[in-house]
Design a protein around this nucleic acid. Structure first.
Lengths: 225, 225
DNA sequence: TCCTTTCCCGACCGGTCGTTCGGTTCCCAT
DNA sequence: ATGGGAACCGAACGACCGGTCGGGAAAGGA
């Protein structure tokens, strides 16, 4: 039965007509397709059948490569977290003045975010709905805390603007950097390194002591002359 | 049948023991409970049964107030979008120098985000999975475009830092401001107005022309002396 | 050539989803 | 007190969910 009765999915469609056969999958190749779907429709809203179809497979075939849907998510989140924590170990993030270390950390974080865009994007959307998501959330909090401590250390050197709570500064900084995942698309005009330099610079400039006051009055323009 | 067999939910539990009867719902009161659940577990991951339980109702009772699950989402998103667009109509956002208008717009956006926190949070998590979500996404893009045009106008006065693309600046600005919804909780130490002033100030300071250069070299500290 | 391993399939499972429906309870104006 | 609409209920619907299973095709070493 089923001599050739398979309904073809996205991948198979693209290959159709060429002599090339549909690629056989290993976990990492399948992970790439799955994460793409998770981002497009959301993890919960993506069914195993849709995952299979997007890969040109039946849904039961997914289970040859992953033991469960949650295991796919775990592997994707782990990849993002490992890449981010690796930045913390880099020399530029460990030695030097707090300000220099913070600059390095932010810039490299943006670079990792861009290079591992789908995986980091998925990580940033996790809300803690399952054991895996809670685990990822906690690991991510560790990373954020390291950034916050670096901002606090920078503040203790007097380089932070007056009246700006270091914790708030760290959150605004991370929020700005993380938001890049919501619009950046590879192949655009921005190179990863350039974007990282500009974003880190804008962020640090924002929380630095150069501004006039910690709290402007309504109607004040904080920009220009 | 069902003499008193209802299983009580979150709201009913809290009311239990007091002489007060469980509140009867109107759409807006129910919306508040529903949005809270949507944020906690995600829209797709929240079932009608869970919505009902959180409100102390059976799941079928929800349909007395809303025609469908998606209608609840639509009403919540509409509330957030209406509040945001109202800011665009304020005098401070329409008259004055571009820089002053931008400051007003950002500051008031943060205030709206804080006051309507659950609804705006839900809006910022929409990914376009349904007709309603696509509609909200498009309205939100209109708002973002207004901000971007204001940043561009500010740039044309020479107040933007050299080498910073206005579009990129607007995205970083909005990303920073929007990220507040991910950690702000009412009742904390920050008042809405203070947070709005500081956040707008930090953001505008970041993209302003005060910094040294548009792209720092690796190892440079963009902060402090 | 043959045999083993890898890869993949359709059919099926119990359970849950959003939604519908007929009927019951509550509140309030009359 | 009573009629009627608003609020609410449990049961049930078809569809689909994540996951399982036994077996078949393809690949690769011998």
């Amino acid at each position: 039965m089923s001599i050739c009765g398979r309904i073809l999915g996205d991948v198979a469609d693209a290959v159709r007509g060429a002599q090339i056969r549909r690629p056989r999958y290993d976990p990492d190749r399948l992970l790439e397709v799955a994460v793409q779907q998770f981002i497009r429709r959301g993890y919960e809203a993506t069914s195993m059948a849709q995952l299979g179809k997007a890969a040109g497979l039946g849904k039961s075939s997914i289970y040859h490569h992953f033991p469960s849907k949650e295991a796919i998510l775990h592997r994707a989140l782990s990849r993002a977290l490992d890449a981010l924590f690796a930045v913390l170990e880099e020399e530029g993030a460990r030695v030097g003045t707090p300000a220099a270390r913070l600059e390095h950390l932010l810039r490299r974080t943006v670079e990792v975010l861009v290079v591992e865009l789908p995986y980091v994007t998925l990580l940033l959307r996790v809300r803690g709905n399952s054991k895996t998501e809670l685990w990822a959330l906690e690991r991510r909090r560790h990373f954020d805390r390291e950034v916050a401590e670096l901002v606090a250390a920078t503040a203790s050197t007097g380089a932070l603007r007056q009246g700006l709570d270091p914790g708030l500064g760290a959150r605004l900084l991370l929020g700005m950097v993380n938001s890049i995942s919501e619009w950046y698309r590879p192949g655009g005009p921005q190179s990863a390194a350039d974007l990282a330099r500009v974003a880190a610079s804008v962020g640090l400039n924002g929380i630095s002591g150069a501004a006039r006051s910690g709290a402007a009055r309504p109607g004040d323009a904080m920009i220009g002359r």
